[in-house]
Write a protein that binds this DNA or RNA. Sequence first.
DNA 1: GCAAAATTGATAGTAATACTATTATATTTG
DNA 2: CAAATATAATAGTATTACTATCAATTTTGC
Lengths: 222, 222
Amino acid sequence: MNHIQVKIEINPDLYLKNPDSSELGRKIVNQSITMINELGFETFTFKKLGLKIESPESSIYRYFENKHSLLVYLVSWYWSWTEYRLAFATTNIVSPKERIIKAIEILTKPVLIDNSFSYINEVLLSEIIFSESIKAYHTKNVDEENKKGFFKAYKNVVKRISNIILELKPDYVFPNMLISTVIEGAHQQHFFTNHIPSLTDKVNDDNSIPTFYTELIFNILK
Amino acid sequence: MNHIQVKIEINPDLYLKNPDSSELGRKIVNQSITMINELGFETFTFKKLGLKIESPESSIYRYFENKHSLLVYLVSWYWSWTEYRLAFATTNIVSPKERIIKAIEILTKPVLIDNSFSYINEVLLSEIIFSESIKAYHTKNVDEENKKGFFKAYKNVVKRISNIILELKPDYVFPNMLISTVIEGAHQQHFFTNHIPSLTDKVNDDNSIPTFYTELIFNILK
DNA sequence: GCAAAATTGATAGTAATACTATTATATTTG
DNA sequence: CAAATATAATAGTATTACTATCAATTTTGC
């Protein structure tokens, strides 16, 4: 994967000017990822970002309508990239069981190695997804933004995996519910582990969240 | 349940002045529930609430530090009340299976009938919980607030149900993860049904979310 | 029943946020 | 190299999230 340069396609409605098309745009995306991680999404502002990249706030507004749009952009980027990772990891594997196992691993573990894209740190981006992505759609404008296709990449991932579920259990009626529960659940359990540990379980095993969700899926499938 | 007046105890750190102790306090809580439902949490402000209850914004600040604290108060109230509902619904039932079924129903269905507390509309409050409660802990100050016990009521509920899980499967290592996944998952699936339906499953059955989570639990337990 | 204490109302004010607008200066590109 | 485009520098506005002050009202304790 390291040496193949893949271009992640982003819905143009997610930005005012493509950040991928200029030095400044790439700096905005790159530094916003670091800053959102450092400050948390609510404390992060375009003013602070402007100071960091030494460009005026108003220049950032030429790329993104506001910080919410930037978050939606990042989330969308992550899911497009993850769909590519999933395709790559599961292709040529005949057994649907094996494919599910690989997929669940990709969906429930934060990214640990940053290797493919120059100006996007995937490790930090995945941390944002795990801790902040829910804020991208938990807003008053969900319906409108959903209509505009802002969550398409995420939906594609859910669909792709629920199709594997249906290969194994064609009559199963809740494949999407199952997969979105697993994805969102894994994000939340990571958050709980770090912040409200009594809502989760401490096991002498760093892999307990993927283990839990893999078991959960196979219990339902059998 | 209708005629028993139960007092819900709230951690005094959750307010500056007990809203239950005065007319104004009760009005603040009562009207904030309506307004958060109407406007969504981010659009809701103390200024707007003040206009509605015809009291100055500054008076509201004498009860709650800010709107975040008010949300945490409401969430805490809901979970204390729900622990009482759970205790009431499961007491005297010998079979842990039966108790789990009752509990999952209470945790995964929004409240439909408002009957017990005078100035708190439980139907509207439950809607807030389903759509906004995640915002109560997904903040930069979780750790600090968790230390102060702000999420105690929620944790108690999770613990109570995971204890029933352990009755049925004493060696199960992920009881808390299972229950918090079910609770949070049910909230999210309701949100998805209303706003991003392709992340969930449309079944000709209004009860599909409780059904899904009940099946999920019994699949794991067997 | 009344003085003291506590609560609320009315009003003003501040710092930060989330933008929008304008114009000059740089940079790119046909 | 001129024209178009992008960026910098700066200013300004409405709203939010508070804090402060003091007068009016209500509650309470003797």
